[in-house]
């Protein structure tokens, strides 16, 4: 049986290790598990980026039908990532700042950093600049759900807030209370 890559229904290319049965078992050898954890972390982040997903929960490994099924399960070899294993991987991702527990003070759901808040900040600033919206007040809703889809479409408010905070530190953004919630105003600058 040769281990080969596989393209999922959503067009994601799974690496060949995803068709290796032991990849789905938590390894007793710490060095081996380190490789497994790193590979799963990369896989989760790149799949999240591919599908524009921001959250993964331990329960996604518990029941079938989650948006993460394509990577958490491999029905061709009858293997799946067990919830306890996923929980361990998520804790390692949090430790490496590849994710944060969100909401905080629990360990069953994480916000994924396939872009760090600092990187989102640059994406956001660039989008605001290129669409000519500098100095205009934008509501959060106008950013997360713009009429013309942008790289920020669907970004969770909690992450958007972090990105704006990064820009605010360098004087490139300011959070402003608006009638129907919150908004922000952006200013030109390079962040240096």
């Amino acid at each position: 049986m040769a281990l080969s890559t596989h393209t999922t229904r959503s067009g994601f290319l799974l690496p060949s290790i995803h068709s290796a049965p032991p990849f789905f078992t938590q390894q007793p050898n710490p060095n081996t598990q380190k490789i497994v954890t790193e590979t799963w972390s990369r896989l989760i982040l790149s799949y999240a980026r591919h599908r524009n997903l921001f959250f993964i929960r331990v329960e996604d490994a518990e029941t079938q039908g989650s948006e993460w099924d394509e990577i958490l399960r491999n029905d061709r070899i009858k293997r799946r990532l067990l919830p306890s294993h996923l929980s361990y991987i998520l804790s390692e991702m949090v430790a490496k700042n590849q994710a944060v527990y969100e909401p905080p003070k629990q360990t069953r759901s994480v916000l994924l950093y396939w872009r760090l808040p600092e990187e989102w900040a640059e994406v956001l600033h660039q989008w605001v600049t290129s669409t000519g919206q500098l100095t205009t007040i934008l509501t959060f809703y106008e950013i997360t759900d713009p009429p013309v889809p942008s790289p920020l479409t669907g970004i969770p408010v909690v992450l958007l807030r972090k990105a704006i905070a990064v820009l605010a530190k360098t004087g490139r953004a300011q959070i402003i209370a608006v009638a129907d919630g919150e908004g922000a105003r952006f200013f030109a600058g390079t962040g240096r």
Partner: peptide, 23 residues
């Protein structure tokens, strides 16, 4: 590597260097 999800055997061992990897 260990595989604990094999239907026929609770503990199956896999030798990665003996597996055929198509990349």
């Amino acid at each position: 590597w260990l595989d604990e999800q094999d239907e026929s055997c609770p503990q199956v061992y896999w030798v990665p260097s003996a597996m055929q990897w198509d990349e």
